[in-house]
Design a protein around this nucleic acid. Sequence first.
DNA 1: ATGGTGGTTTAACCA
Length: 262
Amino acid sequence: MTFTLATWNINSVRLREDLVLHLLQTEAPDVLCLQECKSPLDKIPLEGFSALGYRYMVGRGQKSYNGVAILSKLPIREVAAYDYASLGHARHIAGQLDNGVTIHNFYVPAGGDKPDREVNEKFGQKLDYLTAMRDAFHAEAPETSILVGDLNIAPREDDVWNHKQLLKVVSHTPIEVEHLGETQDAGRWVDVTRADIPEGQLYSWWSYRSPDWDSADKGRRLDHIWATPDIAGAAHSSRILRSARGWEKPSDHAPVFATFDL
DNA sequence: ATGGTGGTTTAACCA
Protein backbone atom coordinates (compact mmCIF):
# COMPACT_ATOMS: atom_id res chain seq x y z
CA MET A 1 0.00 0.00 0.00
CA THR A 2 0.94 3.64 -0.46
CA PHE A 3 -0.02 6.42 1.89
CA THR A 4 0.80 10.09 2.16
CA LEU A 5 1.24 11.78 5.49
CA ALA A 6 1.40 15.47 6.37
CA THR A 7 2.28 17.36 9.53
CA TRP A 8 1.15 20.92 10.23
CA ASN A 9 1.28 23.24 13.22
CA ILE A 10 -2.13 24.83 12.69
CA ASN A 11 -2.05 27.40 15.54
CA SER A 12 -5.73 26.94 16.49
CA VAL A 13 -7.71 24.28 14.66
CA ARG A 14 -10.99 26.08 15.36
CA LEU A 15 -9.90 29.47 14.01
CA ARG A 16 -8.38 27.76 10.97
CA GLU A 17 -10.93 25.03 10.30
CA ASP A 18 -11.34 26.33 6.74
CA LEU A 19 -7.60 26.12 6.08
CA VAL A 20 -7.54 22.51 7.27
CA LEU A 21 -10.51 21.73 5.01
CA HIS A 22 -8.76 23.43 2.10
CA LEU A 23 -5.60 21.39 2.65
CA LEU A 24 -7.57 18.16 2.89
CA GLN A 25 -9.47 18.98 -0.31
CA THR A 26 -6.51 20.12 -2.39
CA GLU A 27 -3.71 17.86 -1.16
CA ALA A 28 -5.70 14.93 0.26
CA PRO A 29 -3.05 13.31 2.47
CA ASP A 30 -4.23 10.01 3.95
CA VAL A 31 -3.10 11.15 7.38
CA LEU A 32 -2.79 14.71 8.73
CA CYS A 33 -0.99 15.32 12.02
CA LEU A 34 -1.83 18.66 13.65
CA GLN A 35 -0.10 20.52 16.47
CA GLU A 36 -1.14 23.55 18.51
CA CYS A 37 -4.82 22.74 18.08
CA LYS A 38 -5.44 24.97 21.14
CA SER A 39 -8.68 23.15 21.82
CA PRO A 40 -10.23 20.50 24.01
CA LEU A 41 -10.71 17.35 21.90
CA ASP A 42 -14.50 17.54 22.02
CA LYS A 43 -14.48 21.04 20.52
CA ILE A 44 -12.45 20.13 17.44
CA PRO A 45 -14.80 20.60 14.44
CA LEU A 46 -14.83 17.00 13.18
CA GLU A 47 -17.97 17.16 11.02
CA GLY A 48 -16.35 18.86 8.05
CA PHE A 49 -13.26 16.67 8.23
CA SER A 50 -15.41 13.55 8.38
CA ALA A 51 -17.43 14.68 5.37
CA LEU A 52 -14.20 14.73 3.35
CA GLY A 53 -13.43 11.14 4.34
CA TYR A 54 -11.33 11.80 7.43
CA ARG A 55 -13.47 9.68 9.68
CA TYR A 56 -10.83 8.82 12.27
CA MET A 57 -9.10 10.97 14.86
CA VAL A 58 -6.87 10.35 17.83
CA GLY A 59 -5.50 13.18 19.92
CA ARG A 60 -4.95 14.99 23.16
CA GLY A 61 -6.61 18.32 23.83
CA GLN A 62 -6.15 21.19 26.20
CA LYS A 63 -7.90 24.53 26.58
CA SER A 64 -6.03 27.49 25.00
CA TYR A 65 -2.63 25.85 24.70
CA ASN A 66 -0.84 22.99 22.92
CA GLY A 67 -2.98 20.09 21.68
CA VAL A 68 -2.14 17.40 19.10
CA ALA A 69 -4.41 15.40 16.80
CA ILE A 70 -4.11 12.89 13.97
CA LEU A 71 -6.86 13.05 11.34
CA SER A 72 -6.98 9.97 9.13
CA LYS A 73 -8.83 8.46 6.20
CA LEU A 74 -7.42 5.12 7.31
CA PRO A 75 -8.54 3.45 10.54
CA ILE A 76 -6.20 4.43 13.37
CA ARG A 77 -6.21 3.34 17.00
CA GLU A 78 -4.59 5.16 19.89
CA VAL A 79 -1.56 3.35 21.29
CA ALA A 80 0.09 5.96 23.55
CA ALA A 81 -0.04 9.53 24.85
CA TYR A 82 3.08 10.59 26.74
CA ASP A 83 3.50 13.52 29.10
CA TYR A 84 7.28 13.75 28.98
CA ALA A 85 8.91 15.89 31.66
CA SER A 86 5.53 15.78 33.46
CA LEU A 87 4.49 19.21 32.21
CA GLY A 88 0.81 18.35 32.16
CA HIS A 89 0.63 19.54 28.54
CA ALA A 90 -1.09 17.91 25.54
CA ARG A 91 2.02 17.46 23.44
CA HIS A 92 1.98 13.86 22.19
CA ILE A 93 -0.32 11.28 20.70
CA ALA A 94 0.54 8.00 19.01
CA GLY A 95 -1.73 5.92 16.81
CA GLN A 96 -1.36 2.72 14.82
CA LEU A 97 -2.68 2.04 11.34
CA ASP A 98 -4.02 -1.36 10.30
CA ASN A 99 -0.82 -1.95 8.31
CA GLY A 100 1.11 -1.96 11.60
CA VAL A 101 2.72 1.47 11.20
CA THR A 102 2.81 3.52 14.41
CA ILE A 103 2.62 7.30 14.05
CA HIS A 104 3.98 9.55 16.80
CA ASN A 105 2.80 13.15 16.69
CA PHE A 106 4.81 15.57 18.88
CA TYR A 107 4.64 19.22 19.82
CA VAL A 108 7.96 19.86 21.57
CA PRO A 109 8.03 22.88 23.94
CA ALA A 110 9.17 26.06 22.20
CA GLY A 111 11.51 26.95 25.06
CA GLY A 112 10.95 30.66 25.67
CA ASP A 113 13.24 33.50 24.67
CA LYS A 114 16.53 33.10 26.51
CA PRO A 115 18.58 29.93 25.87
CA ASP A 116 19.60 29.58 29.51
CA ARG A 117 17.79 27.29 31.92
CA GLU A 118 19.08 29.30 34.90
CA VAL A 119 17.06 32.38 33.97
CA ASN A 120 14.39 30.80 31.75
CA GLU A 121 12.50 27.83 33.14
CA LYS A 122 10.89 27.07 29.79
CA PHE A 123 14.25 26.45 28.15
CA GLY A 124 15.05 23.86 30.82
CA GLN A 125 11.67 22.23 30.25
CA LYS A 126 12.40 21.97 26.53
CA LEU A 127 15.73 20.25 27.14
CA ASP A 128 14.15 17.98 29.77
CA TYR A 129 11.36 17.05 27.37
CA LEU A 130 13.90 16.03 24.71
CA THR A 131 15.90 14.07 27.27
CA ALA A 132 12.76 12.17 28.32
CA MET A 133 12.02 11.40 24.65
CA ARG A 134 15.58 10.14 24.23
CA ASP A 135 15.37 7.92 27.30
CA ALA A 136 12.04 6.44 26.23
CA PHE A 137 13.34 5.54 22.76
CA HIS A 138 16.50 4.15 24.32
CA ALA A 139 14.47 1.97 26.68
CA GLU A 140 12.28 0.58 23.91
CA ALA A 141 13.59 0.83 20.35
CA PRO A 142 10.77 1.87 18.02
CA GLU A 143 10.05 -0.24 14.93
CA THR A 144 7.89 0.35 11.89
CA SER A 145 7.23 3.83 13.14
CA ILE A 146 6.97 7.39 11.89
CA LEU A 147 7.60 10.40 14.12
CA VAL A 148 6.34 13.80 13.03
CA GLY A 149 5.64 17.16 14.50
CA ASP A 150 6.71 20.62 15.46
CA LEU A 151 9.97 19.75 17.19
CA ASN A 152 10.79 23.47 17.58
CA ILE A 153 14.43 22.89 16.59
CA ALA A 154 16.09 23.55 13.24
CA PRO A 155 19.12 21.23 13.43
CA ARG A 156 21.14 21.92 10.29
CA GLU A 157 22.88 25.02 9.04
CA ASP A 158 20.69 24.93 5.95
CA ASP A 159 17.57 24.58 8.10
CA VAL A 160 17.80 28.28 9.02
CA TRP A 161 18.16 31.48 7.02
CA ASN A 162 21.38 32.47 8.81
CA HIS A 163 23.28 29.88 10.84
CA LYS A 164 25.72 32.27 12.54
CA GLN A 165 23.06 34.78 13.45
CA LEU A 166 20.84 32.12 15.00
CA LEU A 167 23.43 30.25 17.09
CA LYS A 168 22.19 32.05 20.22
CA VAL A 169 18.53 32.05 19.23
CA VAL A 170 16.27 29.42 20.78
CA SER A 171 15.52 26.72 18.14
CA HIS A 172 19.07 26.63 16.71
CA THR A 173 21.44 26.69 19.72
CA PRO A 174 24.09 23.95 19.86
CA ILE A 175 22.68 22.44 23.07
CA GLU A 176 19.22 22.07 21.53
CA VAL A 177 20.65 20.57 18.35
CA GLU A 178 22.66 18.16 20.49
CA HIS A 179 19.58 17.14 22.50
CA LEU A 180 17.57 16.59 19.33
CA GLY A 181 20.42 14.56 17.83
CA GLU A 182 20.53 12.32 20.90
CA THR A 183 16.77 11.78 20.70
CA GLN A 184 17.05 10.92 17.01
CA ASP A 185 19.97 8.53 17.59
CA ALA A 186 18.24 6.81 20.53
CA GLY A 187 15.36 5.74 18.28
CA ARG A 188 17.59 5.24 15.22
CA TRP A 189 15.24 7.69 13.52
CA VAL A 190 15.95 8.66 9.92
CA ASP A 191 15.22 12.29 8.98
CA VAL A 192 13.01 11.43 6.01
CA THR A 193 12.74 15.00 4.73
CA ARG A 194 16.50 15.43 4.57
CA ALA A 195 17.10 11.90 3.24
CA ASP A 196 14.81 12.90 0.39
CA ILE A 197 16.02 16.50 -0.02
CA PRO A 198 19.66 16.42 1.16
CA GLU A 199 20.79 19.74 -0.25
CA GLY A 200 19.71 23.33 0.08
CA GLN A 201 17.83 25.67 2.36
CA LEU A 202 14.57 24.21 3.66
CA TYR A 203 12.11 26.02 5.94
CA SER A 204 8.70 25.19 7.40
CA TRP A 205 8.15 28.27 9.60
CA TRP A 206 8.29 32.02 9.08
CA SER A 207 7.56 34.40 11.98
CA TYR A 208 4.36 36.45 12.01
CA ARG A 209 6.54 39.38 13.09
CA SER A 210 7.92 39.81 9.60
CA PRO A 211 5.24 41.25 7.30
CA ASP A 212 7.37 40.50 4.21
CA TRP A 213 7.99 36.87 5.22
CA ASP A 214 8.10 35.68 1.59
CA SER A 215 10.64 38.13 0.19
CA ALA A 216 12.72 38.33 3.40
CA ASP A 217 12.55 34.51 3.67
CA LYS A 218 13.94 34.38 7.20
CA GLY A 219 12.63 30.88 7.81
CA ARG A 220 13.50 27.87 9.90
CA ARG A 221 12.79 24.12 9.49
CA LEU A 222 11.05 23.37 12.79
CA ASP A 223 8.65 20.69 11.51
CA HIS A 224 9.95 17.21 10.84
CA ILE A 225 9.13 13.76 9.52
CA TRP A 226 11.27 10.90 10.81
CA ALA A 227 10.94 7.14 10.29
CA THR A 228 12.55 4.00 11.69
CA PRO A 229 15.14 2.30 9.44
CA ASP A 230 12.83 -0.60 8.49
CA ILE A 231 10.47 1.75 6.63
CA ALA A 232 12.53 4.90 6.00
CA GLY A 233 13.60 3.56 2.61
CA ALA A 234 9.96 3.39 1.57
CA ALA A 235 9.59 7.16 1.86
CA HIS A 236 9.64 9.52 -1.10
CA SER A 237 8.10 12.69 -2.50
CA SER A 238 8.99 14.80 0.54
CA ARG A 239 7.95 18.43 0.26
CA ILE A 240 6.96 21.52 2.20
CA LEU A 241 3.84 23.35 1.04
CA ARG A 242 5.30 26.85 1.31
CA SER A 243 2.29 28.38 -0.42
CA ALA A 244 0.13 27.60 2.64
CA ARG A 245 2.10 30.24 4.57
CA GLY A 246 0.63 32.77 2.14
CA TRP A 247 -3.00 31.72 2.56
CA GLU A 248 -5.42 34.16 4.16
CA LYS A 249 -5.03 34.33 7.97
CA PRO A 250 -2.34 31.64 7.78
CA SER A 251 -0.61 29.57 10.39
CA ASP A 252 3.01 30.62 10.80
CA HIS A 253 3.95 27.03 9.87
CA ALA A 254 3.66 25.33 6.47
CA PRO A 255 2.64 21.66 6.12
CA VAL A 256 5.37 19.05 5.53
CA PHE A 257 4.60 15.93 3.44
CA ALA A 258 6.04 12.49 2.77
CA THR A 259 4.71 9.43 0.94
CA PHE A 260 5.43 5.84 2.00
CA ASP A 261 5.23 2.75 -0.25
CA LEU A 262 4.80 -0.20 2.09
C1' DA B 1 18.89 46.05 22.97
C1' DT B 2 14.29 46.39 21.31
C1' DG B 3 10.08 45.45 19.04
C1' DG B 4 7.91 43.56 15.55
C1' DT B 5 2.54 39.92 14.91
C1' DG B 6 -0.72 36.49 16.24
C1' DG B 7 -4.25 33.21 19.38
C1' DT B 8 -6.80 32.67 23.51
C1' DT B 9 -9.27 35.14 26.35
C1' DT B 10 -10.22 39.82 28.20
C1' DA B 11 -5.05 40.78 31.40
C1' DA B 12 -1.81 37.91 30.76
C1' DC B 13 0.27 34.18 28.82
C1' DC B 14 2.22 31.79 25.02
C1' DA B 15 4.33 31.34 20.44
